[in-house]
Design a binder for these strands. Structure first.
Length: 203
DNA sequence: GACAAGATTAGCT
DNA sequence: GCTAATCTTGTCT
């Protein structure tokens, strides 16, 4: 049922564009992690754009600190941060070096390694609940602070184009879970996909 | 050195 | 639908 596909990492140029563009085009792409000789993959179905200079909700808004400096690195850098005590969120830095912007991966559709995902998610049976949230997918893929600052264009973690070329419609909404900057329509997700986070905007 | 807040989730009602 | 859990980071003293 799962076709063997050739996974070629997206290059740095892909991320060296406007954050909103990258966020939209990341939909349908394949998130890949090589893990102890096995491989974990998932189709990206939901993203959010965070723009550094003009976006109060972005970690990079304001001044550079030790925590957010990764956001100003070169495009294609992985930015993982810890939140609410227990959870990680997985971002990819966009635009040119020195611009503090990134795309948050909010949800993926599991493709390979579902057994591993389930194990990491406390043997959850409902696959629609495995990776439909930024912290959930980070748990399933095993992302943590050790992955912060890594290069996503060539390493054990990367994003590949979808060779199956499945067609889908893109839906846009306001972002989720923020106190500031919620008015920006920077959230992108695949219309009708069951692996998108269940939320008020998604009803 | 101490404290408050946060791009969330799980679990219970 | 609501609330607790949980800890890193930034800011202030």
């Amino acid at each position: 049922m799962i076709k063997k596909t050739v996974l070629i990492p997206l290059k740095q140029e892909f991320f060296n564009r406007k954050t909103v563009t990258v966020a939209r085009e990341l939909l349908g792409k394949i998130l890949v992690k090589n893990y102890n000789n096995s491989i974990l993959t998932g189709r990206i179905v939901e993203t959010e754009a965070y723009l550094g200079d003009s976006d109060p909700a972005c970690h990079a808004y304001g001044k550079i600190t030790k925590r957010n400096e990764v956001l100003f690195e070169k495009p294609g850098t992985i930015y993982v941060y810890f939140i609410y005590g227990n959870y990680f969120c997985f971002n990819v830095v966009t635009e040119q070096e020195g611009v503090g912007s990134a795309v948050l991966i909010r949800a993926v559709e599991p493709i390979q390694g579902i057994d591993t995902f389930k194990k990491r998610r406390n043997f959850l049976k409902d696959i629609y609940n495995l990776t439909n949230g930024p912290a959930k997918l980070s748990m399933a893929f095993g992302f943590n602070l050790k992955d912060n600052r890594k290069d996503i264009t060539g390493g054990e973690i990367f994003i590949a184009a979808d060779s199956t070329k499945v067609k889908f419609e893109i839906e846009i909404s306001e972002r989720i879970g923020l106190n500031k900057g919620t008015e920006f329509p920077y959230r992108f997700f695949i219309k009708g996909n069951r692996f998108v986070t269940k939320h008020k905007f998604n009803k």
